[in-house]
Design a protein around this nucleic acid. Sequence first.
DNA 1: GTCATTTTGAAAGTGATTACCATTTCCTAT
DNA 2: ATAGGAAATGGTAATCACTTTCAAAATGAC
Lengths: 134, 134
Amino acid sequence: MLQGVDMRLTKGCKKVLEVLEQVQELSSAQDIHGLMRNEDDKAPGLTTVYRSLESLVSAGLVQAVALGDGERRYELVKPGEHHHHLVCDKCRSSVHLDQCLIEELEEGIKNKYGFQIKGHILEIFGTCKVCTAK
Amino acid sequence: MLQGVDMRLTKGCKKVLEVLEQVQELSSAQDIHGLMRNEDDKAPGLTTVYRSLESLVSAGLVQAVALGDGERRYELVKPGEHHHHLVCDKCRSSVHLDQCLIEELEEGIKNKYGFQIKGHILEIFGTCKVCTAK
DNA sequence: GTCATTTTGAAAGTGATTACCATTTCCTAT
DNA sequence: ATAGGAAATGGTAATCACTTTCAAAATGAC
């Protein structure tokens, strides 16, 4: 899964990847750091976690997610891909949308507004199936 | 335009509305405060600006926009409405999308994922018509 | 092994936002 | 009008996520 990835895989990065693999959940840098330090007192420091996340994001292995609350979350993705979320305001779980709504519109927006899309943020908040049922 | 709005219109709020009316542009709380203080040394303080924006947002007169850079921007809207932006990474201008892409999808997402949408963030980054032409 | 480069980490610094709290302003009953 | 109480205000300090700094430690090439 790491084949063909063009970046130096430092210890910090490896550790971060491990944690993200385990949690399978949107996690902030501080979350990740906390989890590391829980099971290992001399796990990488917070600075390294931030730096590793930065590298991993630009390598396309991890995506950063802005939920608009001033705290960035991170998540493993298939290299180069990304996706958006339905974030439950009750249980904080998040479901992935199986397709990016923006990519489909890219051409239309280009034509209509003459705007060349380079990136976007899209997250949806509400109540998930499970919490609605309760 | 302020008819039927259910909130106390304090001095701070009025001043903030004035500024937002003039700039017609995404502005941060600090931007707004700066502009006020430029033309009037005893314009409301920063704290009041933040508080006013909070009231105005919950009254639906102003929308808060998260661009994912850790600085919230604000903008006048028709009461209760909202819209999304094409933000140019060259000139920082922003064009409004004339319709909300998410509202259209609400029903589909409800059916497909059982998710009840309550809110969302959507902003698109790239290069605008003018800057592309250059 | 040696030396240069890269990585790391603790602490200090930033920048936006919020909490505090004392002062001022506004409204209402007298 | 005016006194009293609630709401609004503003400067400062605190918070919080994140970044910078810089010296020490790990890595890698020769």
